[in-house]
């Protein structure tokens, strides 16, 4: 069997002249491009092309109905100097991202550590804690959240029983954003599962050796768990941050950006400009600024990664 394969390999090598090699590389290229062609078409036609178009539109006053007129940097100038709601949207989105992402990841890690045991019933618990993440993004939950935290909702009912202050949380400018952050943190299931898989991959010997040397659980957590888990923390951090900047449904459905723009997510403002006012030029400019902000944050996380993310084996995929 193996000698058969060897001779076949030899024959193949012999028959390959330089020209043949070139021709066969061309064939491989053709086959390769044929396989990736669906994505390539989508990438060029639905991503690169439209993005270039939107870069152009961001310098125009395009409104879908009339031809776009070149207005130079006006959209950007307006945005930075003249548009209070733009700054408001940036502030709200940053508070949302910095409020929800660390909380969500901390909670996910905490619960994952609780579940990293061979105790009975853990499988069931994992399921139970994941259910909110399955449903949390749906319109149904958004609709329910609004009532749950409304004036007559269950939350006030419980707070009243406990003697705590009650109010209409979703219509209060001070608390509406916190209500949305809570909704997002509640859906910590995916990072939790990823943390759990990461925790299971840490060799038990590390903890055993540390215990023998008398390291406290807190020290073990700081010196073993966190460094060993850092690639997973990194992945979760990047994904959740980007998702945070893109958040739309929660604000659009529950608070409609209000009250007093206190939950005006960037994505909601962009949607409003584009599809309520059909100010496509301005909205395109908004989209490019969003891309820039996301890019800066991602680049920042990637840059700092070198100092805190620990890879056991460089290389691999």
């Amino acid at each position: 069997m193996s000698s058969n394969m060897e001779t076949a390999e030899l024959n193949k090598q012999r028959s390959r002249s330089k020209e043949g090699k070139l021709r066969s590389q061309l064939r491989i290229d053709l086959v390769g491009f044929a396989f990736i062609s669906p994505w390539l078409i989508g990438f060029l036609g639905f991503i690169v092309g439209p993005m270039l178009a939107s870069l152009y539109f961001s310098f125009t006053d395009y409104d879908l109905l009339s031809d776009p007129n070149w207005i130079g940097l006006s959209n950007y100038m307006n945005m930075f100097t003249n548009d209070d709601r733009f700054w408001k949207a940036i502030r709200v989105t940053l508070v949302f991202v910095f409020g929800s992402v660390p909380l969500k990841l901390a909670f996910a890690l905490f619960v994952a550590m609780l579940f990293n045991t061979s105790r009975k019933g853990v499988g069931l618990y994992r399921t139970l804690f994941y259910v909110p993440s399955i449903l949390g993004g749906s319109v149904a939950i958004a609709v329910v959240w609004k009532q749950l935290f409304g004036r007559q909702g269950a939350v006030n009912d419980i707070f009243e029983f406990l003697g705590l202050p009650t109010m209409s949380w979703v219509t209060s400018p001070d608390f509406a954003l916190s209500t949305l952050i809570l909704l997002v943190v509640w859906q910590f299931g995916s990072p939790m599962l990823i943390f759990l898989a990461g925790l299971k991959a840490i060799p038990k010997e590390l903890y055993e050796a540390a215990s023998v040397d008398g390291a406290s659980p807190i020290l073990q957590f700081l010196k073993i768990t966190i460094p060993m888990l850092s690639p997973v923390i990194f992945f979760n951090l990047v994904m959740q941050t980007i998702q945070g900047f893109m958040a739309f449904t929660q604000s659009f459905l529950i608070t409609e950006g209000g009250p007093l723009d206190s939950t005006l997510f960037y994505a909601v403002y962009l949607y409003e400009k584009a599809f309520a006012h059909f100010d496509m030029g301005y909205a395109s400019a908004l989209a490019w600024i969003l891309l820039l902000i996301c890019g800066i944050f991602t680049a920042f996380i990637f840059r700092t990664a070198k100092t805190w993310v620990y890879y056991e084996s460089e290389g691999g995929n």
């Binding site: 439209p50 939107s54 893109m246 960037y266 989209a287």
Partner: peptide, 12 residues
């Protein structure tokens, strides 16, 4: 981010 391609795709 989905929003970046949303508008040009809509126009397309």
């Amino acid at each position: 981010p989905q929003q970046v391609t949303l508008i040009p795709q809509y126009i397309l």
